[in-house]
């Protein structure tokens, strides 16, 4: 990239940072690739969170402690948890089908992404920037330096951002709000409905076989020893995450076999 030794010296970073980079960078790339390729949205979210943590490490390494902390708190902490919440609300019911419905989309998308990335790399190859470092800018502390900029040069953008946040909050409320269009049912009506409808009047059986498998993904056993299907969440049934209910005739498994089950989904 740089032709002269002087420039090379000027642009070089410390060994510690290099080690950090070469450890975290593959993790970040692999995690993001995993996000791209995993069929389950929850896995994608968790892998993305991992990528973001790696990025936070990079920020910290590059004299941006404030951003690094914000990255962890806001992104990994708030944004990604929001994603997970919504995933739960929307339902973790199904994983994406692998069949591409748009003709040629997959090939074109891969080609475009690769081409774009290659172009970007090529363009970056032309950039020659010396490594000035932030020692001067951060002499009063990183947070103080940022604050000085935000509240002076970028104060207008900052104020506008506040308006944006308020608008976004309002917008989210408006979008998520559902207008009630009928009278709420009274308790009496609800109980009449429950009994008339032939539904299970009493609470459903709880899951879990106490003393052996006290877990939500294990159906309870009925008195005759057969598993009670209604005792586990439908979501878990739909995801195929229900464990085998240990019946009266079930062979006793060892602990390692049971733990190994968790990864086999």
């Amino acid at each position: 990239m740089s032709g002269t030794g002087l420039l090379l010296a000027a642009t070089d970073t410390g060994t510690g940072e290099a080690v950090l980079f070469w450890v975290l960078a593959p993790v970040a790339v692999l995690a993001s690739l995993g996000m791209l390729l995993s069929r389950k949205a929850v896995h994608s979210a968790l892998l993305l969170a991992l990528t973001m943590l790696c990025l936070a490490g990079f920020y910290l390494a590059q004299d941006a402690p404030f951003l690094g902390v914000v990255q962890i708190v806001v992104y990994t902490g708030a944004v990604m948890m929001l994603f997970l919440f919504v995933l739960m609300l929307v339902g973790v019911d199904s994983s994406d089908s692998l069949v591409e419905t748009l003709r040629g989309q997959r090939v074109a998308a891969v080609a475009a992404a690769l081409g774009f990335g290659a172009l970007l790399m090529f363009a970056i190859g032309d950039v020659v920037v010396d490594n000035a470092g932030l020692d001067q800018a951060n002499r009063d502390g990183n947070v103080q330096g940022l604050a000085a900029l935000i509240f002076s040069r970028y104060v207008f953008a900052f104020e506008v951002t506040s308006a944006l946040l308020i608008t976004a909050a309002l917008g989210a409320m408006v979008l998520a709000h559902r207008e009630r269009i009928e009278r709420p049912l009274s308790q009496r009506e609800l109980s009449v409905q429950r009994f008339r409808g032939g539904m299970h009047p009493a609470p459903l059986p709880g899951p879990g076989v106490y003393a052996r498998h006290n877990a939500v993904d294990t159906p309870a056993l009925l008195p005759d020893g057969s598993p009670a299907e209604t005792s586990v969440s439908r979501v878990l049934i739909a995801r195929g995450d229900v464990r085998q209910a240990p019946g009266a005739d079930v062979v006793v498994r060892d602990a390692s076999q049971i733990e190994g089950d968790g990864d086999d989904r």
């Binding site: 590059q62 941006a64 404030f66 920037v129 490594n131 330096g145 900029l149």
Partner: peptide, 11 residues
């Protein structure tokens, strides 16, 4: 931001 030596990029 680090290469240029100012905090604008971070902002």
């Amino acid at each position: 931001a680090r290469m240029h030596g100012n905090l604008d990029g971070q902002v």
